[in-house]
Structures are given as structure tokens and as C-alpha cells.
């Protein structure tokens, strides 16, 4: 298998992977952020303390976190078909990827937000701030760097999951590695695909670290 054959395959596979990871990250962020914040707010002693809601949310997140992704992906096939009309291809893979990443990111958000000093929350309340003020002006800005770090971890986990999505015909670099490397014994091509995945992960991690450093340095040196 020559480079001329590999190149278009690699390009398409990379685009598909970025497409799946990009959309599922966006959905995971939109779903996980409020979920993570709610987990903190509804906890005992929280601003919206509500044991029942907290326990239910916690249980949902735990179930989502404990299912092996590959099993969840298969189990979600009917739902995926209902949402996007098909269970195959990169677009279909976004559904289980996003659903798997929401609870993952939610836990990371929860940890980050919980680390904000309660004194700051109290100060905002003493000024007459309500729950929205506390969330938008205290909890989120104060945990921003940590949230970005969590999002980076989520993106990288999603890159890993997206390769797994290849097993059920999700497309992207994962499918490529499985069909050519595993089924057609094109070992060299498989290693090249792995290298591409490693490069993507490294770039994401460096970008994430860069943003985190920017956000924390601003506080120290202004």
C-alpha cells in the first residue's frame, strides 16, 4: 500500500474523527456543564440543596460513567437511529459519543466547581447576589482554568472513544485502523494511523495546557 493510496484515506479519516470529536465535545460541554453545576448546587449545604434531585442526578451520572463505552454504543443504536436516521457513519457516532461524554465531563465540572472557596459564594450572597449571580459571576469564572483542563481531558477521552466507534462502523481513524490494520494486515498503515492519533492528542493537550496557563497567569501577574 503506497502513500498515494494512504493519503486520501488518512485525510478523510482525520476529518471524520475531528468532526465526531468536535460535535460530541460541544454537546458534552453543553450538557455536562449545567449537570456538573447542578450536582454541586443541589448537594447538602448547597445553594439549591435538594437531596432527592442530587441523588437522582448522581445516580444517572454514575450509570453513564460505569457502562463500558462499546456496550453503551451498541445499546444506544435504536436511539441513534431515531435521532439521526442511521446507526452508521460519523454523524451517527456523535450520538453515543456525546451521551457517553456528558456524565464524564459533568463529574469533572463538579470537582472543579466544588473547589471554589465557599467564602466567595458567601461574599456574593452578602452583597445581595442570587443563585444566578453566584453561578455566573463566582463559580464559573473562578473555576474557568480548571474547567478548561477538564474539557481537555474530555476531548482526549473522546478521541479514544471515537476510535472505538470504528468497531461499529462509526468512521474516522478508528475504522481505518481496524479495517486496514486488523482485517487486511496492513500493519505499516496501522502504525501511521496510530501516529496521527497520537499527534492529534498531543496537539489537543498542548492547546488545553496553553489556555489553562494563560488563564492562571492572568491572575498572578495581571
Amino acid at each position: 500500500m503506497g502513500w498515494d493510496q494512504m493519503r486520501p484515506l488518512l485525510e478523510q479519516g482525520t476529518i471524520d474523527t475531528l468532526y465526531m470529536v468536535g460535535w460530541s465535545t460541544l454537546i458534552a460541554a453543553l450538557g455536562g456543564l449545567p449537570l456538573g453545576i447542578l450536582l454541586v448546587l443541589t448537594d447538602r449545604g448547597g445553594l439549591l440543596a435538594n437531596t432527592v434531585v442530587n441523588k437522582v442526578l448522581g445516580a444517572v451520572v454514575n450509570v453513564g460513567r460505569s457502562l463500558p463505552f462499546i456496550i453503551m454504543m451498541v445499546a444506544l443504536i435504536p436511539f441513534t437511529r431515531w435521532v439521526v436516521g442511521t446507526a452508521f457513519g460519523p454523524t451517527a457516532a456523535i450520538v453515543p459519543l456525546a451521551i457517553g461524554a456528558i456524565p464524564f465531563f459533568a463529574r469533572l465540572v463538579e470537582t472543579s466547581v466544588r473547589e471554589v472557596d465557599h467564602g466567595l459564594v458567601e461574599a456574593a450572597q452578602a452583597m445581595g447576589g442570587g443563585t444566578w449571580t453566584v453561578v455566573l459571576k463566582v463559580l464559573l469564572p473562578q473555576s474557568l482554568a480548571s474547567l478548561v483542563a477538564g474539557l481537555t481531558t474530555t476531548v482526549i477521552a473522546l478521541i479514544g472513544y471515537s476510535a472505538m466507534a470504528g468497531a461499529v462502523g462509526g468512521g474516522g481513524l478508528g475504522t481505518l485502523a481496524l479495517t486496514y490494520g486488523h482485517q487486511r494486515f496492513e500493519t505499516d498503515f496501522m502504525y501511521i494511523i496510530l501516529a496521527v492519533i497520537v499527534v492529534i492528542v498531543t496537539i489537543v493537550q498542548l492547546l488545553g495546557d496553553g489556555v489553562v496557563r494563560l488563564l492562571t497567569r492572568r491572575k498572578r501577574t495581571g
Binding site: D117, G119, L120, E122, A123, K137, V138, P141, Q142, L144, R218, K219
Partner: peptide
């Protein structure tokens, strides 16, 4: 407050 409770991000 004793520990000032200023927002470090601002």
C-alpha cells in the same frame, strides 16, 4: 471577612 473573599479572577 477574615480571609477577604476576593475573586482572584477579577
Amino acid at each position: 471577612f477574615q480571609h477577604f473573599n476576593l475573586l482572584s479572577a477579577r
